[in-house]
């Protein structure tokens, strides 16, 4: 019987207990990391809360199944974060051929008529949500999450040059959408 997790247990200790079948340990890991994971997934799916919650569930189920592949070389949080981002990217990729994915590829996102104020985080989020999915993914991973183009290219399956081009495009669309008001 795996031991009951304590609040003091490290992530690695909890991951080992979870690997031995302790869902209580895994729940503690969930509670520690769900904020970061959900935040990243939410941004990637364009602030679609329902979708993000679905994908976060999916990511944690995958994490449970893949615990054996966690080598304790990196922090558990980093491993889980990457796995979750990858889950979101795969979901976005699977809808790549649908009309929804391509909608609005050519035009700037519409964020409404209200004047832009840099302090209004919500408005910026809306503008990012309205970006075309590929551009949004690259912008979020590069400018928000701090990924390098090489990592983005590897995870999304696009060329490094394409990642840079998408970022350039995303920034342009975002600036246009926000109207360069400041």
């Amino acid at each position: 019987m795996p031991p009951t997790p304590t609040a003091q247990a490290t992530d690695n200790e909890l991951a080992r207990d979870a690997l031995r079948g302790s869902t209580a340990a895994f729940e503690t890991l969930y509670r520690r990391h769900v904020g970061r994971v959900h935040g990243a997934v939410l941004r990637l799916v364009g602030y679609d809360h329902g979708r993000a919650e679905e994908l976060v569930q999916e990511a944690f189920v995958k994490a449970w199944q893949k615990l054996g592949s966690f080598r304790h070389e990196s922090a558990f949080g980093t491993w889980l974060y990457r796995l979750s981002v990858n889950t979101a990217l795969m979901a976005l990729r699977s809808q790549a051929s649908s009309p929804i994915y391509d909608a609005g590829e050519d035009g700037p996102p519409d964020v409404g008529e209200e004047p832009f104020c840099p302090a209004e985080r919500r408005e910026l989020e809306q503008a990012i949500a309205a970006l075309p999915p590929r551009a949004r993914v690259v912008l979020v991973l590069h400018d928000v999450e701090g990924w390098r183009h090489e990592d983005i290219a590897r995870e999304t399956g696009m060329a490094v040059g394409s990642s840079k081009a998408q970022l350039h495009r995303a920034r342009g669309l975002l600036r246009r959408a926000l109207g360069e008001r400041s």
Binding site: E27, V34, G35, F60, L139
Partner: peptide, 27 residues
């Protein structure tokens, strides 16, 4: 300013509801 604003978005954001019961059921 652009980069600072973007990085400010990278905050942990817990889901609006507790997802654990659903995850536990799926496991």
């Amino acid at each position: 300013q652009w980069h600072r604003q973007m990085r400010d978005l990278a905050q942990p954001e817990p889901p609006s509801r507790d997802l654990w019961p659903a995850i536990a059921a799926r496991l």
